[in-house]
């Protein structure tokens, strides 16, 4: 069972465009900030690589953007860790860690 939003596409764009515009500018500003600090960092840090991949999802124009981004940020494994390594999550899964 789904719920049909009473708002059409034009109304949704009218309602949400400005706040979404602000969010994409914030992403651009964050990447500029990183570049000013260290232009090569985005290539070395798995969290920032994940952000770049997420931007690729948005650019691909295929549906279910948010689920696709959630999946690329997530640990895809199911085997429990043998021991506690740290207390907190980081926000992105280091997919390259399995190969190192």
């Amino acid at each position: 069972m789904t719920v049909q939003s009473p708002l059409g596409a034009n109304e949704l764009a009218d309602e949400y465009f400005i706040e979404t515009r602000n969010r994409i500018l914030e992403i651009g500003a964050f990447l500029d900030r990183l570049d000013r600090a260290d232009p090569s960092r985005s290539a070395r840090d798995f969290r920032l690589r994940a952000l770049t991949e997420a931007l690729g999802v948005l650019a691909a124009a295929e549906p279910n953007y948010v689920s696709q981004i959630q999946m690329l940020l997530s640990d895809p494994t199911t085997e429990p860790l043998p021991a506690l390594d740290r207390k907190s999550a980081i926000g992105a899964y280091d997919h390259g860690a399995q190969d190192r």
Binding site: D75, P76, T78, P80, A89, G91, A92
Partner: peptide, 16 residues
Amino acid sequence: TPHLEDKLKGTRVSVD
């Protein structure tokens, strides 16, 4: 269910 990148795995294991 766990936070951030651990949520998917934690939910899968919890439900299992």
